[in-house]
Design a binder for these strands. Structure first.
Length: 589
RNA sequence: GCGCCCGUAGCUCAGUUGGAUAGAGCGCAUGACUACGAAUCAUGAGGUCGGAGGUUCGACUCCUUCCGGGCGCGCCA
């Protein structure tokens, strides 16, 4: 089967609708057929509201259209093999119930979730995609919003990749410009302080304690050239600091970036590349400028060059070259994004922090001006804004100020909360919601966290295999001929739900709503727990002894569930342990 | 002032691009281990979906307006 059950049904319904339209003499072709899930399992496996949507086009009552589609499905040779019933409910919902045999058609010889996903995806020719995320300034440790963006971006990449989409993940390092100068200067002042100077840090310097720590690392690794020794005590340090800063800045950035990379690594975040802004200057920036200028997207005014972004929906035009000739950050960012185009990516996804939303219009404007978003090209450029995380400590907000060095770092977070818990927490919420993270509650509740519930279900299945003395990895789930054992006691419900994984992945590849995968994992684990709690009928070890055929069916259900849970967890960068250690458990329960 | 995001159960959040009786976790109440792990299962209490209008077969979802919270509106990055 080269498609999910849902897509197959959607195709069939589309055929049927088009046939009806032709019969009625309407020159109408349906677009995407929406197929959802009924609110309750006993209503069916799939539900579609198409009949209601088509009511206007066909000028007929929804139920009448639904009836025609029902006829079509039941008389279609391929579809009728899968379907056991089509009910029309409420105002015109089509509720489709599949046959149990549909399960054994999917779970055939050598079946595994992983092989199945490999078969299903890619569903169509997929565009080369680049996802840029985190991209924090290399002037300090990563903060908690970066942690959220990292979890979101990395999970998205894993999911897109699983959907067969060629994905490249990238971190844009802003190692150029004014802030780099300020960073170097900050090191210089701290260095002077070490040399016995009374210093008064300029207000715009980075004040965090980490500046001192990184400075120590630099000093431990290399000696400072004598000509950079601080001037006489009491004299003004400003011009000296400027010069010495040029020495410290690149060294400091290298170490800060390394430290960020190590934070990301411990959060299981993978980047294919780190792209340094400094490599764009000057050649790529100049080339981008020339390109936009030749396309007529720029104009000169009062000695500066402006991008006419208001033509493309921005509130106003934006400066790209200052009147002193230096390019702005926007100009460099345009150059950077044009490299994405040059590198062959036709789908560009950026994940930005909450303070950048005002920036979307101008960058999109630039990409439009550059011809990337030409309607005929089918390219896309999407920006996801990850909203802020309010860090609370016992219900009170933790005040954050990066400049003053008072802020919660990603490291603080991961030191206190296990990575599995953090990553699950971050993707369970939609990216656009502001969310509160109470460290105190997160710490105490992490013991009762939903992520452990999912992992527990997974570990339990492996425990069953250990009890049964069957090797999980070489076991091959196979349901052909075992249909009679697949009904009731949550058996079919669990299997159907589990086999929806490709549909989840397919949806997320389109809408980026990753919280639905977290939800799916939780529901799958819940169904397994219910299945497992049917101790009379679903005791696998016992059934294997009493009725081997039925035992194999139950074992296959469990195996497929474990595979799907492991696969889903890994898509969120969460581990799927085969045993849970008691240390992780809540004590007071 | 303008723009973007958010407002759903006591708390933290889902709600499938307008669909069926608005859901989950935590917390609370009650019950279930001599059977593959009780980190579990079963049952229950808890909602004027921020307020008010509008659009239609149908609105938590779309539009208008108001209220409340957050963030942006540099020739900074």
């Amino acid at each position: 089967m080269k498609t999910s059950l849902r897509s197959l049904l959607a195709e069939k319904i589309a055929e049927i609708v088009n046939a009806i339209a032709a019969r009625e003499g309407l020159g109408y072709q349906v677009g995407r057929i929406r197929i959802d899930y009924p609110p309750e399992y006993n209503l069916g496996h799939y539900a579609s509201p198409v009949a209601m949507e088509l009511s206007k086009v066909f000028r007929k009552p929804p139920r009448q259209i639904a009836e025609a589609i029902r006829e079509g499905l039941l008389t279609d040779k391929q579809a009728s093999q899968l379907i056991s019933a089509v009910d029309i409910a409420g105002p015109g919902f089509l509720n489709i119930t599949l046959q149990v045999a549909a399960l054994s058609m999917v779970v055939r010889q050598k079946f595994s979730i992983s092989r199945w996903l490999d078969m299903v995806f890619p569903i169509r020719q997929e565009p080369k995609t680049i996802v840029e995320f985190v991209s924090a300034n290399p002037t300090g440790p990563l903060n908690i919003v970066s942690a959220r963006a990292a979890a979101v971006g990395d999970s998205l990449c894993r999911i897109l990749r699983r959907a067969g989409i060629p994905v490249h993940s990238e971190y844009y390092v802003n190692d150029y410009g004014n802030q780099v100068r300020l960073l170097g200067m900050s090191f210089a002042y701290r260095y002077a302080e070490l040399q016995g100077h009374e210093i008064c840090l300029p207000e715009n310097a980075y004040q965090g304690e980490y500046i001192r720590e990184v400075l120590q690392q630099i000093l431990a690794d290399e000696s400072i050239p004598p000509e950079l020794a601080p001037p006489e005590r009491g004299s003004d340090l400003a011009s000296w600091a400027e010069k010495a800063g040029e020495f410290f800045a690149p060294r400091g950035i290298a170490r800060l970036v390394a430290s960020q990379k190590s934070d990301l690594q411990s959060f299981r975040i993978h980047f294919d590349t780190f792209f340094h802004e400094s490599t764009l200057h000057p050649a790529a920036v100049e080339a981008a400028f020339e390109k936009l200028k030749n396309l007529g997207a720029l104009y000169e005014q009062e000695g500066a060059w402006f991008l006419a972004s208001s033509r493309y929906g921005d509130d106003k035009d934006r400066v790209v070259i200052r009147s002193d000739g230096r390019p702005t950050y926007l100009m460099a960012d345009i150059a950077y994004h044009l490299t994405k185009v040059d590198r062959g990516f036709s789908r560009i996804v950026d994940i930005w922090g909450p303070d950048h939303h005002g920036y979307i219009a101008r960058l999109k404007g630039a990409m439009q001006a550059a011809g990337f978003l030409d309607a005929r090209k089918q390219n896309s450029f999407e920006v996801l804004i990850v909203q802020q995380v309010n860090l609370l400590e016992e219900g009170k907000p933790v005040v954050m100020s990066k400049r003053l060095g008072r802020f919660q770092t990603m490291r603080d977070l991961t030191n206190r909360i296990p990575v599995d818990v953090c990553r699950y927490f971050f993707v369970t919420r939609g990216v656009s919601t502001h969310l509160d993270f109470d460290l105190e509650i997160a710490t105490t509740q992490s013991n009762r966290n939903p992520v452990y519930y999912i992992q527990y279900a997974h570990a339990r299945i492996h425990s069953i295999f250990r009890q049964a003395g069957i090797d999980f990895d070489s076991f091959e789930a196979e349901l052909s001929g075992l249909e009679e054992y697949l009904s009731g006691d949550y058996r079919d419900e669990l299997l159907y739900f589990t086999l929806r994984l490709p549909e989840e992945i397919e949806d997320i590849a389109r809408n980026y709503e990753m919280q639905s995968l977290a939800e799916w994992l939780h529901q799958t684990a819940t169904l397994f727990s219910k299945f497992y709690a049917q101790k009379e009928r679903n005791n696998i070890v016992k059934t294997l002894k009493e009725n081997p055929a039925e035992g194999r069916a139950l074992l296959a259900i469990a195996a497929v569930t474990a595979q799907a849970l492991a696969e889903g967890l890994s898509l969120l960068g969460i581990e799927a342990p085969r045993e849970m250690t008691r240390d992780d458990a809540g004590e007071g329960s």
